[in-house]
Amino acid sequence: MTSQIFEIASIPADGVGVEVVEAGRNVLDALAQNSGGAFTFEWKDFDWGSDYYARHGRMMPVDGLDQLKDLDAIFFGAVGWPTVPDHVSLWGLRIAICQGFDQWANIRPVNFLPNVASPIVDAHERNLDWIVVRENSEGEYSGFGGRNFSGRAGLGEVATQSAVFTEVGCERIFRYSFDLARTRPRKKVSKVTKSNAQQFGMVLWDDVFDRVAQDYPDVETESVLVDAMAAKFILKPEDLDVVVASNLHADILSDLGSAMAGSLGLAASANLNPERRFPSMFEPVHGSAPDIAGQGIANPVGQIGSAALMLDHFGLNAEADRVRAAIEKTCADGVRSREVGGSSSTRDITSAIIDNLG
């Protein structure tokens, strides 16, 4: 048997990212060790992040993307630290990678795990399960704008921030969402918009959706204003399947979904370049959590769930399902982190998931 070798960039970055990336790597390495030589992971370590910024004045080297571009994937922790402004750390590392590698599809599954309390009444009896698909390359996070007139007397400075919507960007994220919906039992796509107030970019967004939808007559569709969708997440989540939204709207709604499932610490995500011209990046939704960093109590489930998404990306779907089943079994057994009502350490949870891989 010829072994598949996957070269993966490991970028823990800041705070609890260091602890949860280690946990995710341990789970992946355990899978590889028990694969009978079918596949292995070769880790390439990168010390980029806020500590790197303190030494070099940058979050990563000038040639950082060149160092990553030939690898199979990027396993990312979390970015952000009190000593570096958030917009500097985010744009200097995570967004630089996402935009530099055209990782235009961000997927964030919303999963309700056993033995994890949800603020939604009877959540576990309602079989709630949906995926937020985030347009990840343009929209409100395009970076177009600037600050001017800072030399004026008084309160004279002006800042502009432009949202950019292109027909190409809209069409590809909608087709991705429809193709994803076709793989799911419900086969429904809910498009989030705000075209009643944003009459240019989001009207284009709506028009492209309506055109693309004609190619998928077997998929149910709906269009929901973002404020109404926030309410729908709470009041009628059983009606959700694939929810596609712009960069900003999906960022907010996916965090709402994760909170509904019990904690942002449980949430996984994938930043995908579906054409595979560049490596995709897999990371948990939670932040760097400086208040608990280094204490060994961070929840590794989001990172390990992101590892499962990476396995899917590699075509190792059975192994990805084993990881997800092990996460569910671990939670069902009561091995949980503190923010979801448990007392288990990062290491305890990781060890239990490895033991439950089967």
Rank of each mutant, 00 (worst) to 15 (best):
S288H: 04
D207N: 13
S269F: 09
G305Q: 00
D239F: 08
A308P: 12
A230C: 12
D291C: 13
N317C: 15
G296I: 08
S306I: 01
A289T: 00
A250I: 05
A289R: 04
A213F: 00
G257E: 11
P274A: 02
L204Y: 00
M229R: 09
S246A: 06
R322V: 03
G287T: 00
I234P: 08
A259M: 15
L264R: 05
P284C: 02
P237S: 10
S258R: 10
K236C: 15
N317T: 15
N247Q: 04
F233L: 13
N317K: 14
L264G: 10
H286E: 02
N299Q: 07
D251Y: 11
V219Q: 01
A293K: 10
P300S: 02
A289E: 02
G294V: 09
L225M: 14
P237R: 13
T221H: 03
T221I: 08
A320P: 01
D210Y: 05
V208F: 01
Y216E: 00
D241H: 10
Q295V: 15
D251G: 03
A308F: 07
Q295C: 15
V242W: 01
D255H: 11
G302P: 07
S223D: 12
F209D: 00
V219M: 01
R211T: 06
D251E: 06
D255P: 12
F282P: 03
L256C: 14
V219C: 03
A259Q: 13
V219N: 00
L272W: 03
W205H: 01
A245H: 01
A228C: 13
M310F: 11
N247A: 02
L256H: 14
P217W: 15
L272E: 02
R324D: 02
D218F: 14
A293N: 07
P290M: 06
Q295H: 15
H286Y: 01
A259S: 14
K236R: 15
L240N: 09
M310W: 12
Q214G: 12
V243P: 12
E275V: 05
V242Q: 00
I234D: 11
V242T: 02
A230I: 06
F282Y: 09
L266V: 07
M281G: 05
I292Q: 15
S306V: 06
H313E: 14
H249V: 01
D239M: 14
Q303E: 06
L248V: 02
V212M: 03
L311R: 12
V243F: 06
V285D: 04
A293M: 10
L316H: 14
H249E: 08
V208A: 07
S269N: 10
A259D: 13
I297A: 12
D207P: 03
S263D: 05
A298M: 05
A320Y: 03
V243G: 05
D241S: 12
P279S: 01
Y216H: 01
D215P: 11
I297G: 14
R277W: 06
E238P: 08
F278R: 09
N247W: 09
F282M: 06
